[in-house]
């Protein structure tokens, strides 16, 4: 066997592949790591929750199960309630749809104008 000329530090592409296929996958991964570091849930509770989601829908893309697990565990730990989450999904949807393409989507632009307004101020 002949010795390779480059060290792995010099040719990282050989050993690494992109860990995330889309930015949102990276976001949910990092949120989970931070919440665990904050002590919101133990890593073993996390793997149980994720394992249950993977088991329930084996054909679902991996990070979609990860997201579903994160929604469940934050709800179970009373960090984010379901109504709160659903209202916020609506708000982001309205914000996106009222934002011209190419401009940053801001949550303020998703405030309701046709009904009771949702309070976005920090708790």
């Amino acid at each position: 066997m002949s010795a390779p000329e480059k060290s792995p530090e010099k040719s990282p592409e050989k050993l690494r592949e992109r860990p995330f296929e889309a930015p949102w996958e990276a976001q949910v991964f990092a949120l989970t790591v931070k919440l665990n570091e904050k002590g919101v849930f133990s890593w073993s509770d996390w793997t149980k929750t994720l394992g249950a989601e993977l088991h329930e829908a084996p054909e679902r893309p991996y990070y979609e199960s990860w997201l579903a697990a994160l929604e469940k565990i934050t709800q179970a730990n009373a960090v984010v309630s379901a109504p709160e989450r659903l209202a916020r999904i609506d708000a982001w949807d309205r914000a996106a749809k009222s934002t011209p393409h190419g401009q940053p989507i801001l949550l303020e632009n998703g405030a309701r104008t046709d009904g009771p307004s949702y309070d976005f101020s920090p708790v």
Binding site: L67, E84, W92, V123
Partner: peptide, 16 residues
């Protein structure tokens, strides 16, 4: 939408 919703709430509440 789901990811943004979750993240924005967690940021607001000071978790992340």
């Amino acid at each position: 939408l789901r990811v943004r919703a979750l993240e924005s709430i967690l940021v607001e509440k000071g978790y992340v």
